[in-house]
Simulated scan of single mutants.
Amino acid sequence: MLDSTLEDQSPTPARNSPIQGETEVTLTINDESYTVNIEPRVTLLDVLRERLGLTGSKKGCDHGQCGACTVLIDGERVYSCLSLAIMQEGKTIVTIEGLGSEEELHPLQAAFLENDGLQCGYCTPGQICASAALLEEVKQGSASAITPDLTSLPDLETLSEAEIKERLSGNLCRCGAYNGIVAAVQQVSGQAAPSPAANILVEEPEQ
């Protein structure tokens, strides 16, 4: 006779079996509330682009390696391709569409234009969102992996080119517009002028 405890056990579902059903999720994005019915596995990036029409956040690698999908969640930069939308309920999400408008650009958007911090533009929304987070991190006294002295953290006026590059190292630009990107961040930081290296892509060529 079989043990009754064994008879009552339900079969263990296969690990790769599909998840059935959808869940209602309410997200706060760019100061607006959106309610969507989604499967728990859907990423924030897919909700933004495919369900809400907020296509500023780009899908590059879809594996958290390029940074094109970067958005701000509660003020911190996040790869939206790696973030489940269902986990963002109750949080404040800001995409590139929420940083500025056609009538009034965010200072970083204007600086990217002025300093040629883009070429094809595909990575630019993520670069700008990451740069906005970078500036806030510096204001709050956050160190980077290359900050030499943790007792004397950089502020916006002393933020070096090396610090900017390190803090933006999670955002790739395949066109190679890094000098202009650094110059844009330096400009918004309130520094008097971009570094000499950044000037390479900013100055007009001599006639």
Rank of each mutant, 00 (worst) to 15 (best):
C81H: 09
R15P: 12
P13E: 11
E24P: 09
E50V: 05
R174W: 01
D31K: 15
E161Y: 10
T28S: 15
L150K: 06
V185F: 02
I73P: 03
G21P: 08
L48M: 09
T158E: 09
C66G: 03
E97K: 00
V188G: 03
A68E: 10
L99W: 00
P148Y: 05
T92D: 15
E204M: 11
P18H: 02
L6V: 14
A192P: 08
D74Q: 09
L168W: 09
G190M: 02
C175V: 08
V182H: 05
A85N: 09
A14L: 14
V78H: 07
D8Q: 15
G21E: 02
L134F: 15
G141W: 02
A193V: 11
D46S: 14
Y122G: 08
S142E: 14
E114R: 09
Y178R: 08
Y178S: 00
V185E: 02
T5G: 03
A198W: 03
L82V: 05
R51D: 15
I19Q: 01
A193P: 02
G180W: 04
G121Q: 02
N179Y: 13
G64E: 03
T35L: 02
A192Y: 00
L172Q: 06
K59T: 00
S142R: 15
S83H: 13
V25I: 13
D8W: 04
Q109V: 06
L150V: 05
T5C: 11
E104L: 11
G190E: 05
E76M: 13
T26Q: 07
S4L: 13
E39N: 15
S195Q: 01
G121H: 02
I96C: 03
Q207D: 12
C129T: 13
H63T: 12
N115C: 11
A133C: 06
P13K: 11
I200P: 01
T35E: 08
M1C: 10
E161S: 15
S160V: 10
Q140G: 01
Q140P: 02
T26W: 04
T55Q: 08
L168I: 03
L156I: 08
L150H: 07
V25T: 03
R15E: 07
Q187M: 10
L72F: 07
E114M: 07
T28L: 09
A110R: 09
